[in-house]
Structures are given as structure tokens and as C-alpha cells.
Amino acid sequence: MVHKILVCDDSVSIRQMLALTLNDAKYDVTESKNGMQALELAKQNNFDLIITDINMPLLDGLSLVSKLRVLPEYRFKPILLLTTETDPKKKKLAKAAGATGWIIKPFDPDKLLVAIRKVLR
């Protein structure tokens, strides 16, 4: 079974980077450029994993997670936040919003896949 992943980042290069890596690893990737769009896409599709940036226009990553967790189909789904913050406070915030975990930017393609394998099998 091919896992469907939604990636959300306002930076097109990060998005492309994610998409390239994930496509290469045979995941089915959907891209979105802000939280609003991601939320809409998430409602229309049933993704197995959502990876989102935190700092985004329209709807930031943390709010996106909270909004997703309210939806029954995303209650238990893994959601990973992309963050450049190494600050533990930010991580706490991420957890409080309901994120499964985080991926620290910058990441190698390999590290990204390792992180994803933590939540998708």
C-alpha cells in the first residue's frame, strides 16, 4: 500500500525538496503552500501522514495541527512539524497542539525518511 503524505510549507524549495525525497521513496505526495490550503486538502483526502511547517501565512502550522486533531479522521494520524527551532519551549508548544513529532530543518533526505519511518510502516 502506498502511503499518502501531505506536505505543507510556504517555501516552494522546501516543498519541492520534501516532494522529491518522498516521491523517490515511493510515497504519494500532495503539496500545499499554506495552512488553509492544507486543511482543505486534508478534509478532501485521507492522508496517512501530514508534514507541515510552523511559520506560514494564513494559518500557521500549530493552528493547523489543532484544527486537524478535531477532525475524526485525523485524530490518531501522525502529524510532523518542520521546525528550525531547537528551543525546547517550541517543542512543548508543538506537542501541546497535538503534533506527533518534529523534524528539524535543515534535514537530509535520509534523515527525513528515518523520521517518517518512525510513524509510517
Binding site: 511559520n55 501565512p57 528550525t84 535543515p106
Partner: peptide, 20 residues
């Protein structure tokens, strides 16, 4: 802020450590 943040994020991927 977002602009600086995005540049940092992208630069890291390509190992432009000075920019990061």
C-alpha cells in the same frame, strides 16, 4: 521574520552553513 526564516531553512538543506 518569515523571509529570514525561510532562507535559513532552505540554506541548511544545501549546507550553506555561513548563510544559516
Amino acid at each position: 521574520f518569515r523571509a529570514a526564516h525561510s532562507i535559513k531553512g532552505g540554506a541548511g538543506i544545501f549546507h550553506f552553513d555561513d548563510i544559516v
